[in-house]
Amino acid sequence: MKTTNYAVEIVNELHRSVEQIADSDAETFADIIIQSDKVFVAGAGRSGLIGRAFAMRLMHVGINAYVVGDTITPGIDKDDVLIIGTGSGETRSLIPMAQKAKSLGASVTAITITPESTIGSLADAVVKLPGLPKDQASGDHSTIQPMASLFEQTLLIFYEAIILRLMDKTGLDSSRMYGRHANLE
Results as ranks from 00 to 15, higher is better:
residue 3 T to C: 06
residue 4 T to P: 03
residue 4 T to C: 03
residue 6 Y to E: 10
residue 6 Y to Q: 09
residue 9 E to A: 08
residue 13 E to R: 03
residue 14 L to Y: 04
residue 14 L to V: 03
residue 15 H to D: 12
residue 16 R to S: 11
residue 17 S to I: 00
residue 18 V to I: 10
residue 19 E to Q: 08
residue 21 I to K: 01
residue 24 S to M: 06
residue 27 E to G: 09
residue 30 A to T: 15
residue 32 I to G: 13
residue 40 F to K: 00
residue 41 V to S: 05
residue 45 G to W: 03
residue 46 R to L: 06
residue 47 S to I: 02
residue 50 I to W: 05
residue 52 R to V: 13
residue 58 L to I: 05
residue 61 V to D: 13
residue 61 V to Q: 13
residue 65 A to T: 09
residue 66 Y to L: 00
residue 70 D to K: 00
residue 74 P to S: 01
residue 74 P to L: 01
residue 75 G to C: 04
residue 76 I to M: 06
residue 79 D to R: 13
residue 79 D to G: 14
residue 82 L to S: 04
residue 84 I to G: 00
residue 85 G to F: 00
residue 87 G to R: 01
residue 92 R to T: 06
residue 95 I to V: 15
residue 98 A to M: 10
residue 98 A to K: 10
residue 99 Q to E: 15
residue 100 K to V: 08
residue 101 A to S: 09
residue 102 K to L: 10
residue 104 L to D: 11
residue 105 G to L: 09
residue 108 V to G: 04
residue 111 I to L: 06
residue 113 I to K: 05
residue 114 T to S: 12
residue 120 G to I: 01
residue 120 G to Y: 07
residue 123 A to R: 07
residue 123 A to G: 07
residue 124 D to M: 01
residue 125 A to C: 12
residue 125 A to E: 14
residue 127 V to W: 07
residue 131 G to P: 03
residue 135 D to P: 02
residue 139 G to P: 00
residue 139 G to L: 03
residue 140 D to C: 03
residue 141 H to W: 13
residue 148 A to V: 00
residue 149 S to W: 00
residue 152 E to S: 06
residue 152 E to D: 11
residue 155 L to D: 05
residue 156 L to R: 05
residue 157 I to T: 13
residue 157 I to E: 11
residue 158 F to R: 11
residue 158 F to K: 11
residue 160 E to R: 04
residue 162 I to D: 08
residue 164 L to I: 13
residue 168 D to K: 15
residue 172 L to R: 14
residue 172 L to H: 14
residue 174 S to R: 06
residue 175 S to I: 10
residue 180 R to D: 10
residue 180 R to W: 07
residue 181 H to I: 10
residue 182 A to L: 09
